[in-house]
Deep mutational scan, measured.
Amino acid sequence: MASQGTKRSYEQMETDGERQNATEIRASVGKMIDGIGRFYIQMCTELKLSDYEGRLIQNSLTIERMVLSAFDERRNKYLEEHPSAGKDPKKTGGPIYKRVDRKWMRELVLYDKEEIRRIWRQANNGDDATAGLTHMMIWHSNLNDTTYQRTRALVRTGMDPRMCSLMQGSTLPRRSGAAGAAVKGVGTMVMELIRMIKRGINDRNFWRGENGRKTRSAYERMCNILKGKFQTAAQRAMMDQVRESRNPGNAEIEDLIFLARSALILRGSVAHKSCLPACVYGPAVASGYDFEKEGYSLVGIDPFKLLQNSQVYSLIRPNENPAHKSQLVWMACNSAAFEDLRVLSFIRGTKVSPRGKLSTRGVQIASNENMDAMESSTLELRSRYWAIRTRSGGNTNQQRASAGQISVQPAFSVQRNLPFDKPTIMAAFTGNTEGRTSDMRAEIIRMMEGAKPEEMSFQGRGVFELSDERAANPIVPSFDMSNEGSYFFGDNAEEYDN
Rank of each mutant, 00 (worst) to 15 (best):
R74I: 04
E115A: 03
I365L: 13
L306E: 12
I63W: 06
G200C: 06
G460C: 01
E443T: 13
E454M: 08
I406Y: 12
D480E: 02
G5H: 05
D491H: 06
F489T: 10
P161M: 06
I33M: 04
T23K: 00
V363K: 13
Y97V: 09
G249K: 05
G450N: 00
T433Y: 00
A263F: 07
Y487F: 05
G282K: 13
V299G: 12
R121T: 13
I25N: 05
A403V: 03
I425R: 12
G282V: 15
K351C: 08
E434G: 09
G86Y: 00
L315R: 07
M66D: 10
R441P: 13
S165Y: 02
P322W: 13
E81I: 00
D372H: 12
V329L: 05
A153K: 02
Y281W: 09
A123K: 09
I406S: 15
K293M: 10
I388N: 10
V186D: 06
N395G: 02
A427D: 04
S84L: 15
F346G: 00
E434N: 01
S297W: 10
W139N: 08
C333I: 08
S376K: 06
G93S: 05
N59G: 12
G394V: 05
S217G: 04
A411P: 08
E73C: 12
S165F: 14
A123R: 02
T23M: 00
N334T: 05
C164V: 15
C44R: 08
Q308H: 05
V476K: 12
G435F: 14
A263D: 13
M13C: 04
L110Q: 05
F338N: 14
Q149D: 11
Y40M: 10
Q42K: 12
Q399L: 07
K351Y: 01
R243C: 14
I475D: 09
E24S: 15
S482P: 10
R121W: 00
V29H: 05
V67C: 07
L264V: 12
S217H: 01
R102C: 15
E369H: 11
F464G: 01
A323L: 00
T433L: 09
S486R: 10
T188M: 10
R470W: 13
M331F: 07
I347P: 09
I41H: 15
R446L: 05
P248R: 14
Q235W: 11
T437W: 10
P453A: 06
I301E: 03
G450V: 14
G35W: 10
G86C: 02
G30H: 09
A442V: 09
I201H: 05
F346E: 03
D203W: 10
S274G: 08
I257E: 08
L256R: 05
N202D: 15
M43A: 08
K103E: 14
D72P: 03
D372G: 12
K351V: 02
N498A: 15
W207D: 10
H272I: 11
S262N: 10
R391S: 13
D497H: 02
A284W: 09
P89V: 00
A85D: 00
S376Y: 15
R19F: 04
Y496N: 14
T396F: 01
T430F: 01
L259C: 09
T171V: 03
R208C: 13
A286E: 09
R208M: 08
A260V: 02
A286H: 13
K214F: 02
S345C: 12
M426N: 13
A237R: 01
S28R: 14
A337S: 13
M137W: 07
S438G: 15
N202P: 04
R384L: 00
S84V: 15
A271I: 07
D127F: 02
A278R: 14
D439L: 02
S141Q: 12
R317T: 07
W104H: 12
R261C: 12
S141H: 08
Q20E: 05
E434I: 00
N309T: 00
I25C: 09
E294L: 02
A27L: 02
